[in-house]
Design a protein around this nucleic acid. Structure first.
Length: 803
RNA sequence: GCUGGUGUGGCGGAAUAGGUAGACGCAAGGGACUUAAAAUCCCUCGGGGGCAACUCCGUGCCGGUUCAAGUCCGGCCACCAGCACCA
């Protein structure tokens, strides 16, 4: 018998053996069935691994190890999303090249991950900062550029006053920079943009063909924000131009009593001569332009605005002349930058009309309260009134009829809109992929030739962005000044770099063929491995990273580069691990747990088991060191089963059903995010072994095979020490049969009038009448009066209803 | 405000499809072993009442459907996360 379980010896021993035997190398034999399990690759921060990291990594390690035992060729890779601001900021502060900082951090992360016994195929490790990798990130950018999906535009962008970079709208949280928390202001800059909006529809449609956790799919849909409505043209009194608006409620057109334009609307300048209160208008615009989108939103409670005196429009269905206002609650970035206001049936318009005393006309009847007192927005029950040819129709019918009318009279059309905005793709930073574009005064933006890639990130003296918002690369004149590839004249390189999202938008493709220097990955490899079978990541990435990578993938599909429309067949997400006090772990709260300490004191297997047992996988869970101890105790009890191990090459009769039930439960729980109940089932199983006082070799072998994905080191050691054949990582996953899951006798609950009164033991396929008779006898004292009903649910419950 | 999620013992959490609420673990209490402690093993462990067999109450709150509701329906409340005037 083996000595007391010592993880200090057992864990490094097996990690070395797995390395030496290349136990988890992915096969390139493409005739085998494949399984591609993916976790989000980490940003190698200076803090090292956090206890949050092992949660998803262990979960999919379990899936990967199980699938290997089931005969799949598994790809479970790991890499580094290593470009990014914290590294650059650290480099600036400490005068160390970000390349060195990255190298050190990666080394540390890798050692930490290795100590946890993950079955990653390290031969396929990738790093986004490696020129052999960003070669292809740049290549994809050129593809996007050549397809017209990358463009440069002067636009007000979100400018972080501290990071000195432009941010995508998606990166701004509550008006402050998502990364550093500093104030974000508006600044006009020439920016590279990617036309993700052109893919809005495809990105919505694609969600129907994949298996995403429902709330993830919902968030993606809401973020894209599709709405269907109509564009309607309003004639401007005495002008040639029409003012076009977008509306989702064209049924209420008869109730449009005024219009509102965004303060940035181009018609305001165009018709300035007609506007009699120009000074007032200018003052309002000035004030609005100072506000960021966020301030505009914050000040929203109280509506502000100015009427454009001298400029009016005509309601195309009533023929009435209506005033035009400007207000900052109308955004230039959505729809057409102008709206028709129907105060009776839109909350914001109602507030605005009340404040400025504008007419409110009811066109949908159905409210108990007059619309002058309360806005009525219900679309399900109302009926159209005061609306000419729409009178008497439901809202839905009225919409259809109105669109017909608009189109036949050429004053409008059906129209779909999306909330999604284009992706701001430039960063005024050093530590990112250089954008492979040259600007020539004569030829415009000229892309580099594919053969010139990768465009290497040059060495610079200082990584500090310049105060005027230029990237540090702008100071490198010998790098910046080049000849135009088209005309040979003087030209300049683009000095902005790509955002961190770029490298992570396609990394899962590179894992399939990571060393290929001719293509991003071979067609063969892509065809075999795609799509990713299961991708797990944090909830915080369900809108940004997930949407961006789906966009790039779909674009590459359209270009014939990848074989599938969608990159990920299945997407799940894990909950956060909180401190012992239930708060988010942070240095300032002093509740950070270092995984290295847990590995040292309790072992990697204990950490892995605990993180899976801690609670429902998709929910946040608070750390508990006592809980860690409980898991260590469980593994020790598994170890000590050796003391009661007996011979036997098949399950003993009294445990056979339990064995089959456990295999079934563990097998399905591992695939459905229920790691906690899978472990509970194994705990219950060993409790049965101890209760019985013995476990035979067949039973013990099955337990080891079920447990090894969770706790691979201890189980591998027990497998070897007790003379089981071969390596456990190569063993076959245990089989079960549904038939054998059922015990020969079952316990049936007996209820009288719905209350539990007794339980009886009965054969599993007993006759209904016999069981009911047995139940009546068991609960005889509780049955009073006449029996009016007897319910029997086979194998579960008998309910006697009496009165 | 809108959207999504959650609400079950002292704690983390179980409970396919409505069918014995509290699996599994932690903590706590009692006992065994020990000179003692740790470790380990055994017992108890939702609340009230009873000497006891037993009994009543109990899954955020109010109501409903059902032989039967943590689970379904209607109406609330609380907390967490995301979004922010999207026409």
């Amino acid at each position: 018998m083996k000595e007391y379980y010592n993880h200090h010896e057992v864990e490094p021993k097996w990690q070395k053996i797995w390395d030496d035997e290349k136990a988890f190398a992915t096969s390139t034999d493409y005739s085998k069935p494949k399984y591609y399990a993916l976790v989000e690759f980490p940003y190698p921060s200076g803090q090292g691994l956090h206890v949050g990291h092992p949660r998803p990594y262990t979960a999919l390690d379990i899936v990967a190890r199980k699938r290997r035992m089931q005969g799949y060729n598994v790809l479970y890779p790991m890499g580094w999303d290593a470009f990014g601001l914290p590294t650059e900021n650290y480099a600036i502060k400490n005068h160390i090249h970000p390349k060195i900082v990255t190298k050190n951090n990666v080394e540390r992360f890798k050692n930490q991950l290795h100590s946890l016994g993950y079955s990653f195929d390290w031969d396929r490790e990738i790093n986004t900062t490696d020129p052999g990798y960003y070669h292809w990130t740049q290549w994809i950018f050129l593809k996007l550029f050549n397809a017209g999906l990358a463009y440069k535009t002067e636009m007000p962008i979100n400018w972080c006053t501290s990071c000195k970079v432009g941010l995508a709208n998606e990166e701004v949280v509550n008006g402050v920079c998502e990364r550093c928390g500093s104030e974000v202001v508006r600044k006009v800059k020439s920016q590279w943009m990617l036309k993700i909006t052109e893919y809005a529809e495809k990105l919505i449609e694609g969600l129907d063909s994949v298996d995403y956790v429902e709330r993830i799919a919902t968030q993606q849909r809401n973020w894209i924000g599709k709405s269907t409505g109509a564009e309607v043209q309003f004639a401007l009194t005495g002008k040639e131009d029409k003012l076009t608006v977008y509306t989702t409620r064209c049924d209420t057109l008869f109730g449009a009593t005024y219009m509102v334009m965004s303060p940035e609307h181009p018609y305001i300048d165009k018709y300035k001569d007609s506007i009699s209160n120009w000074d007032e208008v200018c003052a309002y615009r000035e004030e609005a332009s100072k506000k960021s989108d966020f301030e505009r939103a914050e000040l929203a409670k109280d509506k502000t605005g100015v009427e454009l005196k001298g400029l009016t429009a005509t309601n195309p269905v009533t023929g009435k002349e209506i005033p035009i206002w400007i207000s900052d609650y109308v955004l230039m970035s959505y729809g057409t930058g102008a709206i028709m206001a129907v105060p009776a049936h839109d909350e914001r318009d109602w507030d605005f009309a009340k404040k400025f005393n504008l007419p409110i006309i009811e066109v949908v009847a159905g409210s108990d309260v007059p619309v002058t007192e309360k806005v009525y927005t219900d679309v399900a029950t109302g009926t159209l009134v005061n609306s000419g040819f729409l009178n008497g129709l439901s809202v839905a019918d009225a919409k259809a009829k109105m669109i017909e009318y608009l189109e036949s009279n050429k004053i409008g059309c059906a129209k779909t809109n999306y909330k999604l905005r284009d992706w701001v793709f430039s960063r005024q930073r050093y530590w990112g992929e250089p954008i492979p574009i040259i600007h020539c005064d004569k030829c415009g933006y000229v892309p580099l030739k594919e053969e010139e890639l990768p465009l290497m990130l040059p060495e610079v003296e200082s990584y500090m962005p310049t105060d005027n918002g230029e990237s540090p690369l702008a100071a490198m004149t010998e790098w910046v000044n080049v000849k135009c590839p088209k005309c040979g004249g003087d030209a300049k390189r683009e000095t902005d770099t790509m955002p961190q999202w770029a490298g992570s938008s396609w990394y899962f493709l590179r894992y399939t063929d990571p060393k290929n220097d001719k293509e991003l990955a071979s067609k063969e490899a892509l065809k075999y491995w795609l799509p990713v079978d299961w991708y797990n990541g944090g909830m915080e990435h369900t809108t940004l990273h997930l949407l961006y990578s789906r966009f790039w993938h779909r674009f590459l599909y359209d270009q014939g580069v990848v074989p599938t429309k969608e990159p990920y067949a299945k997407r799940t997400s894990h909950g956060m691990i909180l401190g012992e006090n239930g708060e988010k772990m942070s240095k300032s709260r002093g509740n950070v747990v270092n995984p290295d300490d847990i590995v040292r004191d309790y072992g990697a297997d204990t950490l892995r088991t605990y993180e899976m047992f801690i609670g429902a996988f998709d929910q946040a869970a608070a750390w508990s060191e006592d809980g860690v101890k409980g898991c260590r105790r469980f593994l020790e009890r598994v170890w000590k089963l050796q003391e009661i191990l007996t011979d036997g090459d098949k399950y003993s009769d009294d445990l056979e059903a339990k064995m089959h039930q456990t295999i079934k439960k563990v097998s399905s729980d591992f695939e459905s995010l229920k790691y906690n109940t899978a472990i509970a089932a194994m705990m219950a199983l060993i409790n049965d072994f101890y209760k019985k006082g013995s476990v035979n070799r067949a039973e013990f072998g099955t337990l080891l095979r079920l447990l090894t994905p969770v706790a691979p080191h201890i189980t591998e050691e027990l497998w070897e020490a007790n003379g089981y054949e071969g390596r456990l990582y190569n063993a076959a996953w245990p089989e079960y049969s549904d038939e054998k899951c059922v015990e020969s006798t079952v316990t049936i609950a007996v209820q009288v009038n719905g209350k539990l009164r007794a339980t009886i033991q009965a054969p599993k396929d007993g006759e209904k009448d016999a069981i009911i008779a047995q139940a009546k006898e068991a609960a005889a004292e509780k049955i009073t009066g006449n029996i009016i009903k007897e319910i029997y649910v086979p194998g579960k419950i008998v309910n006697i209803v009496c009165k």
